[in-house]
Simulated assay, not measured.
Amino acid sequence: MAEHDSAEHDSAEHDTYVTANQPYERDTRYIETRITRDAADGYPVEADRYRLVVSYACPWANRTIIVRRLLGLENAISMGVCGPTHDKRSWTFDLDPGGVDPVLGIPRLQDAYFARVPGYEKGITVPAIVDVPTGAVVTNDFPQITIDFETEWVEFHRDGAPQLYPEDLRAEIDEVNKRVYRDVNNGVYRCGFAGSQESYDAAYDQLFAALDWLSERLENQRYLVGDTITEADVRLFTTLARFDPVYHGHFKCNRSKLSEMPVLWAYARDLYQTPGFGDCTNFDHIKSHYYEVHRDINPSGIVPKGPDLTNWNTDHGREKLGGSPFGTGTAPAPL
């Protein structure tokens, strides 16, 4: 089993708030039920049975959107999309007609959590996989969801699907993921929601030390592990995509912008321009969520107009390092 992120999710803000004089600590409670081929937890891999509920705003959910598309699981697992903002109770389906998910028939993701655990008291979080027949959440264990997409749902992968978690590289992928989660994926939150100068300074230093380490690692290799895209690249990408629009200013991660870090900026553009990444990224939803919902650190709720994000489509030059995004596989079909 993959190394877990040891984190809860970008939720209905049950775990994202500033506590005075305290470092930010993310809630680590999951519904850890798995959907597997042997149905060990009571939920078998089965096409058309489950619905992945996401928001394009959330980096943890964004991972599942990308992996689902890269593997071609769209025909096996349907997807419900919540709006970019939510209230204190729950993510909501305000993008759908009448504000109701057309498959689950509910206005709030909270309803699916309550169907599993009445009065569920933990974070109502995305991503979540819902069992459509019962309307109950099966799991919100986001690190395991993508690993299981890659290893348990193989029967439903598209022809030419890439190997995102190849057996011979799993130990290295897990090792890289562990540091990337601790210092980068969650590191930006530890900066943004720090409750003291001391905890902010420590998180800031740890974040940029890790980004420097990643820059050095990626200077002479196109991808994080091996010569093709893996789970490690997906996990780093969703944080990098949010860095300049949100984390640099909103979370005070301002030593430098992503666009001022040459290696990481080229790497991020390479991924963004790869089918399955940029077409699964919604900068408007990202900005709306962070600036409108996080009133602890942006009391006005004003969403900045900048930065100009057209530069994501500029040449990156990473092809010269070799490697191939999908290895012996192929790109997913255009949306």
Rank of each mutant, 00 (worst) to 15 (best):
L240V: 01
H285N: 05
A241M: 11
T230S: 13
L236Y: 00
H250I: 06
G226D: 01
Y223V: 07
K287N: 05
P299H: 07
Y291T: 12
A232H: 03
T228G: 02
S288V: 09
Y223F: 15
Y290I: 07
R255C: 03
F283A: 07
D284R: 04
A232Q: 00
M261E: 05
L240H: 01
D227E: 14
R269A: 03
D284G: 06
D244H: 01
D212N: 15
D227S: 12
Y290C: 05
K257P: 08
F237E: 12
F237G: 04
D233V: 15
L218H: 00
L211P: 06
G278A: 03
F251K: 04
V246I: 08
L211H: 00
P299F: 08
H250T: 07
T228K: 04
L224T: 08
L264C: 07
N220S: 13
H248T: 10
V246C: 15
S300C: 09
Y267C: 06
N298R: 03
D296P: 14
W265D: 12
I302W: 02
A241I: 01
P275W: 02
D270K: 06
L224Y: 13
A241G: 04
R295E: 09
V303N: 01
A266G: 10
Y272H: 10
H294N: 07
D284S: 09
T239L: 08
N220L: 09
T274Q: 07
E231Q: 13
T228Y: 07
N220W: 12
H289N: 02
K287Q: 13
A232F: 08
G306E: 02
D308H: 07
K252G: 11
I229N: 01
L271H: 06
N254E: 04
M261R: 13
T238A: 04
F251I: 15
G278C: 10
Y291K: 01
A209G: 09
L236D: 01
Y267A: 02
D244C: 10
S300K: 02
I286S: 03
R242M: 05
T230R: 03
G278F: 12
D244L: 15
D296Y: 11
